[in-house]
Write a protein that binds this DNA or RNA. Sequence first.
DNA 1: TGAATGATTTACT
DNA 2: GTAAATCATTCAA
Length: 213
Amino acid sequence: MGASSDTDRPLPRSFYARPVLTVARELLGKILVHQTPSGRISGRIVEAEAYRGPEDRAAHSFGGRRTARTEVMYGPPGHAYVFFVYGMHWHFNVVTTRIGAPHAILIRAVEPLEGRQLMAVQRGLPETAPELANGPGKLCRAFGIDRASAGVDLTCSRLYLVDGPRLPHARSPRIGIDYAGEWAGVPWRFFAVGSPFVSKARPNQIACKVPRR
DNA sequence: TGAATGATTTACT
DNA sequence: GTAAATCATTCAA
């Protein structure tokens, strides 16, 4: 029942300072924690997507694009890349790899653990609903992640990840990036097999590979 | 200065 | 199945 203990330590920077696909795969099962003024919120990561600029056409850092928004991706691994889309949704990413490599991982869905009541209020849903955080925008809404979390260091902030057991996973192409040409087909979306907390996304974009390891 | 555009969600036909 | 909501960011001029 208790989820806090001395195992509740932020993952070290060394976790993030590895190839983005490696980190993306290992993110499944890790716990996202946000200590908000209203209370502690946490959830098990069940879906994530890797974005690997400058070569990845789907990445905001494609072509080495470097603006105020994308700047954090060029900095040290273990920081939060948080951005706003569609006029109403925030998205939360973790920066990986190394300084100068604009690689990040979009966290797309979590299984709610602590603070479900808070999430339910933020989302206007019952606290048992599997839709509390089964999408990148829904997750940020449920966790209260917004501009205030942009750029924070995940190794020493109120927003961080803690260790957890790996989950059996599969891969698929990434969601919502049809504009990215051949990069739209790359299987860089990782999700927990059989979890009811994975986003519904697109019915046609299900597993394209078998769980491995 | 202005127009276009989303790494989405939700509601509705 | 389609469309509206809604605005920070980006780029063209």
